[in-house]
């Protein structure tokens, strides 16, 4: 009983991270019809930004709560900034190019970020210790051990998901983003600054990566240069299961993927090394079954 709850908590944590990454994919796809594969490496960039912030905070003697705020803030800002720069400088100029060129571009941008961290971050090839800034310990509830940090992080992640959802669906900015997503040309004639809106949308999408990166570092206490790659694949597939362009679908996809992984680890411990492989096989089967995603209605191709 207690171990099931333990798996559940762990799965919830992973699902929150995956869901955050998937939201980014879904925003980029909704706005520009691109798969921005550098998203995972933007996440890594944000996490390393957070790490540097933690070092700086320690050097400056910040109290621990301020250090925590500082770390998360820098992670998010670093991701948002690089996401907006990529959108403005590299994605927008290619918006009329064949989709292969666009995918290659974002993939190579991701590779460049990944390699820069590996080569130029001090001792970047090796995993880096991420400081533990949240209260350690936890409490026991009928045999289930709840880690305080886990609970806080899950709550923070979900709160951020709601915040993004609110920005997209309830604010003027979100309205502009949705207008651009619907029809860029028309939005432009209605006086919306297309370039700026796209850059902001990419910044918001990339913030989710920054939050996910900070959560990852704070929860697992270790980050490395290549962690974004697998998170990107998982986030991408989660976004597809949810129906690309659908925020709630992306979140469902994220938790579904984490659920699949957790099920493999819990039910088939001998195969736990292959949990990603198995989860992805299930995902591909789901995509074959419902190509437009689990939540989306049947769409039709533009002719």
């Amino acid at each position: 009983m207690s171990s099931i709850a333990q798996y559940l908590l762990n799965g919830l944590m992973q699902g929150t991270i995956y869901g955050l990454v998937a939201i980014g994919f879904t925003i980029f796809f909704g706005v520009m019809n691109v798969i921005k594969f550098s998203h995972g490496d933007v996440l890594t960039f944000g996490a390393f930004g957070g790490l540097v912030a933690a070092w700086a905070a320690t050097a400056l003697g910040f109290p621990i709560w301020l250090e925590l705020v500082f770390v998360v803030l820098i992670s998010v800002m670093a991701s948002a900034a690089i996401g907006a720069i990529i959108a403005r400088g590299l994605v927008l100029p290619l918006k009329d190019a064949p989709p292969l060129n666009m995918l290659l571009m974002t993939m190579m941008v991701g590779t460049a970020i990944r390699e820069c961290i590996r080569l130029f971050f001090p001792n970047g090839t090796n995993p880096q210790r991420f400081p533990e800034l949240l209260p350690s310990g936890g409490f026991d509830l009928s045999g289930v051990y709840f880690r305080y940090d886990g609970l806080i992080l899950i709550a923070a992640g979900i709160a951020f998901i709601f915040a993004v959802q609110w920005i997209i669906n309830r604010t003027r900015l979100g309205l502009a983003i949705r207008a651009v997503a619907e029809d860029g040309e028309t939005a432009r004639t209605m006086g919306i600054n297309f370039t700026l809106t796209v850059a902001i949308a990419f910044a918001i999408g990339s913030m989710t990566a920054g939050v996910a990166g900070a959560l990852y570092g704070l929860y697992y206490s270790e980050i490395n240069y290549s962690m974004g790659l697998i998170l990107a694949i998982i986030g991408f597939s989660a976004a597809i299961i949810g129906g690309l362009g659908n925020i709630w679908g992306a979140i469902v996809g994220g938790y579904l993927f984490a659920g699949l992984q957790t099920a493999v680890v819990a039910l088939l411990p001998a195969l736990s090394d292959y949990k990603n492989v198995i989860a992805l096989i299930v995902v591909v089967a789901l995509i074959a079954w419902r190509p437009t995603g689990l939540l989306a209605e049947r769409g039709s191709e533009r002719v």
């Binding site: 798969i35 694949i233 597809i240 992805l280 591909v284 190509p291």
Partner: peptide, 21 residues
């Protein structure tokens, strides 16, 4: 084969996943 009838992006996902895993 499973993603043959779906949008091009999904085929990219299967080869990506295979390449990384």
């Amino acid at each position: 084969l499973p993603v043959l009838r779906t949008r091009g992006h999904y085929a990219a996902l299967t080869t990506l996943a295979f390449g990384v895993l």
